[in-house]
Structures are given as C-alpha cells and as structure tokens.
C-alpha cells in the first residue's frame, strides 16, 4: 500500500527536490519511519524526543494529526499526507 506524502520546500533537500513522494505504513509513525529509510535525515527534522516537532504540522486528508491520534493516526490506502511548517497567518 503506498501513500502520497507532500513535502514542503524546506525539506526537499532530503527528497532530491521531489515535492510528492510515496511511503508505506499503517500508522503515521510507520510512514515517517519509511520516509527515513528512503530519505535519510528527514525523520529527525519531523520528530524529536517528544514526538512531532513544534513547528511541523502534518495533515491527513487536510486534518491536523494532532487532533486525530497523533503519530498513531491510522493511514488508509487512499489517504494523502501533507507536511507543512507552522507559519503566521492573520
């Protein structure tokens, strides 16, 4: 099962400039593990010892995973994942 993951500009050095990559996994944590295997170094830009980094937002089908089950959020076959840095609005 492969899931589409959108990579923000700031993390594309890890994906050879690709903005859309695919990854495998049943949970978000597994998807991030799989990203790390294929794009070494990206994992620690997304996670720290406390889980998801403060200035990283990850959305499954446009919903913020912090309000789903966080890293344990279950990812379905047709789901899409978007990673974005937290920026100011307003």
């Amino acid at each position: 099962m492969s899931i589409e993951v959108r990579i923000p500009t700031i993390l594309r050095p890890y994906t050879s400039g690709e903005k859309l990559v695919t990854a495998q996994g049943i949970t978000l944590a597994e998807v991030i593990n799989d990203l790390e295997i294929n794009y070494p170094g990206i994992g620690e830009r997304l996670l720290d010892e406390n889980g998801l980094r403060r200035f990283i937002n990850i959305y499954v089908n446009d919903e913020d995973v912090r309000f789903l089950d966080g890293l344990q959020s279950v990812i379905g076959e047709n789901d899409s994942i978007t990673i974005l840095p937290a920026v100011a609005g307003g």
């Binding site: 500009t9 700031i10 913020d64």
Partner: peptide, 29 residues
C-alpha cells in the same frame, strides 16, 4: 509554497495566543 519559504524550521511561528486544548479539530484548506 512561497509563503512557507522559511530558511530553516526554527523560524516557524505559532501565535502566543494559541492554546491547542481549546480546539476540537483543525483543517488545512
């Protein structure tokens, strides 16, 4: 993408007013 053109992730921004515990959910549109 231009708007998310940070030089590094430490430049990210979360408003000081933000308290996640007050929200039920959050969508990106």
């Amino acid at each position: 993408e231009l708007v998310y053109g940070l030089r590094n992730l430490d430049e990210g921004f979360i408003p000081e007013l933000y308290d996640e515990s007050l929200l039920t959910t959050r969508f990106s549109v």
